[in-house]
Structure formats: structure tokens, C-alpha cells
């Protein structure tokens, strides 16, 4: 249990660092580290397929994309001063909210729990994906196609 708590803490910490770091490269890498933490959390929650996808896609692919984008941008542009003064109070409220949730989240959390009498499923992930949620697959196909077309529209040949 304590290792699980450590992973959760790591997730929040790296995400926070990703928001705070001035250097965009470090921020992108920090986001990657957060993804790794999430992967381990997903493994712990007995969701190995989701964990594998998260690792390869988020921790891997997205971090690579970010780093390559950062490399295309000149150094000076990357170190902008963030205008955080206006919103300085927000993290304070977040802290308050967090503490409040910790103590009073009892009632809310019990409320959030779902129906107890559900039938647990027997099917494996593959079967589920291909039969029950086949329309999501059509959707995935469409979005990949859309992504390809968009990249082609942005960077294709025939552009100036």
C-alpha cells in the first residue's frame, strides 16, 4: 500500500514540476516521468493493457513529440515569464480544497460509489474491444485518418 501511495505522490509531483519548470525541455521530460508513474499505478490496479498503452504512447510517443517540438523553437522564445501573479491565490484554494476533501470527502465518496450489485464481467480485453465496443474502433480509425490528413494539410508538399 505504501508503495502505491508513493506512486500517486510521484504522479502529482512530476505533474506539478511539469507546470512549474521554466525550461520547456525539463517540463516535457517531467511529464514523461509522470506518465511512467501513471503506468505503474495502472499496473497496480490490475489493468495491464492500459498500462502498456500508457507507457508506449504517453511516456514514449508524446514525450518524443514534445521534445522534437521544443527543439524546433528558438531558445529565447522558450523562457517566457509566466503571468502567475494574477492567479497566485488559486494554488492556495487548491490546498484548502484538498484538505477539505480529505476530511469531508467521506460523504461525497460514499455518494460516488456505484451500484453494488453489478455482475462482474468475464470477457477479456480483446473480445470486449472487438465485439462490444466495435463502434469505438470505427471511431479510432476515423481519428487516426483525421490526424494523418491534418498533418498532411499542415506540412504537406505543395506548401510554400
Amino acid at each position: 500500500m505504501s508503495s502505491y501511495l508513493l506512486l500517486l505522490f510521484a504522479l502529482v509531483l512530476f505533474s506539478l514540476l511539469a507546470v512549474v519548470f521554466r525550461n520547456m525541455l525539463l517540463a516535457a521530460l517531467s511529464l514523461g516521468a509522470a506518465s511512467v508513474a501513471l503506468t505503474l499505478i495502472l499496473f497496480a490496479l490490475s489493468a495491464p493493457w492500459a498500462a502498456a498503452f500508457e507507457l508506449s504512447v504517453c511516456a514514449g510517443l508524446i514525450t518524443v513529440l514534445f521534445v522534437s517540438a521544443v527543439s524546433m523553437i528558438r531558445k529565447e522564445e522558450l523562457f517566457l515569464k509566466e503571468g502567475r501573479a494574477r492567479f497566485a491565490l488559486l494554488p492556495f484554494f487548491l490546498l484548502l480544497f484538498g484538505i477539505g476533501f480529505w476530511f469531508f470527502g467521506d460523504r461525497l465518496a460514499v455518494a460516488l460509489r456505484g451500484m453494488p450489485g453489478l455482475v462482474g464481467e468475464q470477457a477479456g480485453v480483446g473480445v470486449l474491444l472487438w465485439s462490444v465496443r466495435s463502434h469505438d474502433l470505427v471511431g479510432q480509425l476515423c481519428i487516426i485518418l483525421a490526424g494523418v490528413l491534418v498533418i498532411k494539410a499542415f506540412f504537406g508538399r505543395g506548401r510554400d
Binding site: R133, G139, I143, L149
Partner: peptide, 13 residues
């Protein structure tokens, strides 16, 4: 959820 997926298709394009 399927609606979400197709909404993103529309958004991306």
C-alpha cells in the same frame, strides 16, 4: 464514450 471519440474526430479536422 463513442460520442466522445467521434467528437474528437470532428474537432481535429
Amino acid at each position: 464514450f463513442t460520442m466522445y471519440v467521434f467528437l474528437e474526430v470532428v474537432a481535429v479536422s
